[in-house]
C-alpha cells in the first residue's frame, strides 16, 4: 500500500503538521518505505486472534473521589507561550462555548 503525496499532505493536516518542500517529498518516500516494510504483517494469519492493546492483564485501578490541592495559577500558567493574568491566550477560536 504505497502512500501518495496527497495522502501525506492530508495526514499532515490531520496531525497538525505543515510539511513544505522538500520535506513533503522526502516524507512521502520514507513513509512509503516504512509502510512497505510493515506490509510484512500481511503474511501473518491473525484470524481469531484477540488484539492485545496492553501488556498488563490487570484491571480496575481507581482513586477515591477526594479533592487534592490544585496548582497555584501562576505555576499552572508559568509555561504558557502567551497568557494574561488569568488565562492562556491562543489565536481566535470559533464556536466558542
Amino acid at each position: 500500500m504505497a502512500i501518495t503525496r496527497d495522502e501525506v499532505e492530508k495526514v499532515s493536516l490531520l496531525a497538525r503538521l505543515l510539511l513544505k518542500e522538500p520535506e513533503l517529498e522526502q516524507m512521502t518516500g520514507q513513509l512509503g518505505a516504512v509502510l512497505e516494510y510493515i506490509a510484512l504483517l500481511d503474511e501473518v494469519d491473525t484470524a481469531n486472534v484477540e488484539p492485545m492493546a496492553h501488556p498488563l492483564d490487570v484491571v480496575d485501578a481507581f482513586r477515591d473521589d477526594e479533592v487534592q490541592p490544585s496548582l497555584d495559577r501562576e505555576r499552572a500558567l508559568a509555561n504558557a507561550p502567551n497568557r494574561d493574568d488569568e488565562c492562556y491566550r491562543v489565536p481566535a477560536v470559533l464556536g466558542v462555548t
Binding site: V8, V11, S12, L13, A15, R16, L17, L18, L19, E23, M27, Q30, L31, V34, L35, V90, P91, A92, V93
Partner: peptide, 23 residues
Amino acid sequence: LIRMYRCSRSEGFGLEVKRRVML
C-alpha cells in the same frame, strides 16, 4: 489557530518525531 498549530508543531519537532507522528 490551525496555522498556529501546524507551524508550532512543524518548527518545534524534529524530523524523526514528525515521521512517527505521521505514521
